[in-house]
Computed example of a mutant assay.
Amino acid sequence: CWLNDFQEELVVRPLHSGDIYASFQFRTLWETDFMRGNKEWSLFKMFSRTLTEACPLASSSKIYIDITDNPEHFELSPATSLLSQAMVLGDRRTFSVYDLTQQDTFGSVRSLNLLIRWKSTEGDMLRPLLHAERYVAGYGLQTGEIHTLMYNNHPYRSFPVLLLDSVPWYLRLYIHTLTVTSKGKDNKPSYIHYQPSKDRVRPHLLEMLVQLPPNSVTEVTVQFERALLKWTEYTPDPNHGFYVGSSVISSLVPSTVAMDTNSTQERPLFSSFFPCKEESSYFVRVYTEPLLVNLPTPDFSMPYNVICLTCTVVAVGYGSLYNLLTRSFQIEEPSPGLAKRIANVIRKMRGVPPL
């Protein structure tokens, strides 16, 4: 099989924490020695060699370094004058481009070793426009409350989100207690679908469409009651608790970057990983944390105590009864003493009946 066109790219993005985010047909987080005082990273540390040439089969071979935060947080060497901009999840990022098909990229030594040296670890991490969290509130082992918080960090745009929640049947939801609040006010969902659970058959299914106001936190709360399981349905470690799956939040998040009308410029390959345009929204799916819920747990040591006590009572009672039913009783007269035997001998010699 012959290829008419083959292209490859390596995307490297330095993070504030001193790690490297790289993409070469996959995404990964490359650890560095930043915490041990070595505040630099290079291609030689990643691949144990430098780059000397491009892939012979590639018609386009480029390396992209995210320099949006440069020169505030790190230095890049060798520098290049070739820059490119791309949209990544609604954010315009600037990249330094190293074209490996050009001989000038390798310099006179015919070797390319990109070096990134961090200046400091200070700086705020970028907050996503949409993120969520979930936790369980309440006390005791009878009732509780599930709280789901959805954050919209967009400065001026509101957008709808689809919340999908699947709760096990042993947490019996009280749907009449469902509340949705944003900025201290009630936020009525545009659409709600609820499918009640059946014990030991199917879980609760709650789906709703909620509009998130700009720069706000929307809280969804619902109360539940804990069910008492059969003793055979408990896990080997029931006191650890039972896991409840994550909530799924899906939305088309609007971009914070203005539309770029120049659509004829060359774009990097990795921009096709995100199916969106600058003038449109991009799809985001967020999973919350799983919950760990404690259920009413019986004292599993009680059967052992009952068995021991029952066996003891049966052994004592049955043993005594069996002894009484199987024992034979005989009357035996005690043998006379020495004085009595001597007296009987004398009485016999005198012709007197013995004692």
Rank of each mutant, 00 (worst) to 15 (best):
C1S: 10
C1W: 07
W2T: 10
W2D: 11
L3R: 07
Q7W: 08
L10N: 01
V11I: 09
R13T: 09
P14F: 01
L15I: 03
L15A: 05
I20H: 01
A22W: 02
T28H: 07
T28V: 08
T28A: 10
W30E: 13
F34H: 11
M35A: 13
R36Q: 14
R36V: 10
E40W: 07
F44Q: 11
M46L: 15
F47G: 05
S48Y: 10
T52H: 15
A58I: 03
S61N: 02
K62G: 00
Y64M: 06
P71W: 08
L83R: 13
Q85P: 00
Q85C: 02
D91M: 04
T94A: 04
L100H: 03
L100K: 04
T105S: 12
G107V: 12
G107L: 12
S108T: 15
L112P: 03
L115Y: 07
L115T: 14
I116G: 00
K119C: 02
K119E: 03
G123N: 03
G123Q: 03
G123H: 03
D124A: 15
R127M: 15
L129T: 06
L129G: 03
H131C: 09
R134K: 15
Y139Q: 14
T143Q: 13
G144M: 01
H147W: 05
R157N: 13
R157G: 05
F159C: 10
P160T: 06
P160V: 05
V161Q: 01
L162I: 09
D165I: 00
S166C: 07
L171T: 00
L173D: 04
I175T: 15
T179W: 06
T179Q: 14
V180Q: 00
T181L: 01
S182R: 04
K185Q: 06
N187T: 07
N187F: 01
I192G: 00
H193Q: 11
Y194G: 09
Y194N: 09
V201K: 04
R202H: 01
R202F: 00
V210F: 00
N215A: 11
V217Y: 02
T218N: 08
E219A: 06
Q223R: 13
Q223F: 06
A227C: 07
L228C: 11
L229V: 03
L229F: 03
T232D: 15
P236I: 09
H240K: 15
F242G: 05
S247C: 05
S250V: 04
V253N: 04
V253D: 03
P254A: 09
S255L: 02
T256A: 08
T256G: 04
M259C: 13
D260M: 09
S263M: 11
R267G: 06
R267K: 14
R267N: 08
P268D: 05
S272H: 08
F273D: 09
P275W: 07
P275R: 10
K277D: 12
E278A: 11
S281F: 07
Y282Q: 04
F283D: 08
V284W: 01
Y287D: 07
E289F: 08
P290L: 07
L291C: 09
N294E: 12
N294H: 14
L295C: 12
P296W: 02
T297C: 15
P298E: 13
M302Y: 15
Y304K: 15
V306L: 15
T310L: 14
V313E: 08
L321W: 12
T326R: 10
T326S: 12
F329Y: 08
F329M: 05
E332V: 10
A339Y: 06
A339W: 06
K340A: 11
I342K: 10
K348I: 03
K348D: 05
M349T: 10
M349P: 02
G351Y: 07
